[in-house]
Design a protein around this nucleic acid. Sequence first.
DNA 1: AGCACGCCGACT
DNA 2: GTCGGCGTGCTC
Length: 721
Amino acid sequence: MIEGGTVDVLIPLGLDQAYSYAVPPGLALAPGDVVQVPLGPRETVGVVWAVGAGRGGNLKKVTGKYDMPPLDPALRKLVDWVAWYTLAPKGSVLALALRRQPDDTPERPKLGVRLAGPPPGRMTPARARAIAAAEGGLLIAKSALAEAASVSAAVIDSLVDAGTFIVEPMPREAIAALPDPDHAVPELSEGQGEVAQALVAAVQARAFSVALLEGVTGSGKTEVYFEAVAEAIRQGRQSLILMPEIALTAQFIDRFEARFGVRPGLWHSAVTGRRRERLQAAIASGEAKVVAGARSALFLPYKDLGLVVVDEEHESAYKQEDGVSYHARDMAVVRGRIENAPVVLASATPSLETRVNAERGRYTHLKLPERFGGRELPTLGLVDLRRDKPERGRWLSGALVKAIETNIEAKEQSLLFLNRRGYAPLTLCRDCGHRFQCPNCTAWLVDHRFRRALVCHHCGHVERRPQECPACHKPESLMACGPGVERLAEEVATLFPQARSIVLSSDFPGGTERLKTELMAVAEGEFDIVIGTQLVAKGHNFPGMTLVGVVDADLGLTSGDPRAAERTFQALRQVTGRAGRGEKPGRALLQTHDPEHPVLKALVSGDPERFYAAEEASREAAGLPPFGRLAALIVSANGQAEAESHARALARCAEAGDGIAVLGPAEAPLAVLRGRHRMRLIVRTTREVNLQDYLRAWLKRGPKPKGSVRVAVDVDPQSFL
DNA sequence: AGCACGCCGACT
DNA sequence: GTCGGCGTGCTC
């Protein structure tokens, strides 16, 4: 505590340094306190980062202190570490941890309406919809009712005036009920029990450790790590379960509730306003024992974190690339270390870097080899499209069609996986060969029949699909090339007119909400055939699904991305794992033109080790460093001031013997990258298009004398801990 | 993040 | 001749 001295205040903006301010007499400040300070012409919120170390001179004064819990030392350390590691300005990282807006306005009880009076004198369609939606006399939030009845709030208000609805305060929903670790203890198999025991022991040790929990889809990973969560609850400590946003579904919440009797504290982008604030307060006070959240939950102010779980560890959604660029899985490991808490990384298809860490003994490797309840893994088979060739304009082989038929007869569900949105990935003119290309990128425009448009999946460019060729003006000459899910749906409708089918893709008309509803409908067996892109592979349990058909298993294996094979393997393993999770055994058929491809052979063998071995071998053959020794750089032109720290970061990478990946955008002096440290440039990116071209252009442009390099390290924080 | 300064294209 | 585009820099 200091009175009348100076403090260094970090402001949650793109500033790398804390600014010094004078502390006015009568104000006592300690590190972590949230304060208001003048910055330029305005007042801003900031956090006291240090006390008494300020430079002298004419300092502005701290204007005030917010009445909110200070950022504890662990969280401040995390901010410092992440800023150091990602080379983002400290203030930008602080902004991630300080997303709460200090708010002094008193909390007003939320008001709901209830159907209680006679119908209004004048009935209108909108009013009728609102009344119908409020049927049953339940208390509903006004906004929710307006949404459900698709009427404006004014309609509800008029019905309140008419006396049809009455207004009542909504009961305050419990934001963080206490989970009961013994609510419904599951019966675990011997293998599961052992793994669960290892995780429980890690929680009991109250020390930092990292475990990779690997288990096939349906092996009970969730049940097993729930035992570790239960142990943390028994100790009265908090648990964080990180998951990709998409996986935070009703299904997960139901499973949690079945195990612990209450819902977990849910943290994701859709949780807003007062609810967000209350959850944050409950986390800071330690009242919220379990938080299930998307990557931003990493920066919440836990009071006593006893366990961190990263579910679906390999998911690329953990990677944030805009603003502060970080990998939430890696930062979760760092947070575990700072909090001295165990970390569990769970996946059916671990990422290569995590496997490397496990192999080297940095992480314990726990495996769940079997499916839960003795259920068998689906049998996988390849369909050689060179022999079993669909007719022109068709994409389903005889073998797959037959399998679907059998499934329909048996009243079982089938899933057709094709990771391509839209109708056709390419449109060309039969006459002159003109191909529709994006004006901004070099990608082909994807035909979206449903939207009657040509869309660039890379940059979002949209244009109308013309009637005639824009080059030779021949009418009726345009031809769709290749399949997308919409086109596949057409084929399915022709082949199986009696079947109930649905297309599920991320651009589903009606948005995420309707998509969730439809996923539930699929789980309840309301469709015979599901045609879906990547998203059907993730986190959903379809008990009636006994057949998975992969329409094009070669898709993704040929791209220039160094992680293409890994991602394809993961996606195919996950999607084929959708089969046979219910009572009946499942099978999967993968259509391919290259049945000898090592990735597919490894997949069919059911032994993931074969894939990883093949992958390491191919990396070696390509002259790339082994995984785990690969750092990534994010390079951009920036002010001179930062050049030095960036050069230091580069040197750090070089000392560690890491490869360097350029993620761009870049105007940076290549000399810094090559000349001083003699490093090999490796491209590693999630950007799918044109990276080679981009890099070539970048190299051609050559070193520029002006500007500095901005660098961020990615992938393997352990080597820098 | 805001806000100012500054340097090149199309307008009354 | 100016209005305004957003690139770059600064805020204790």
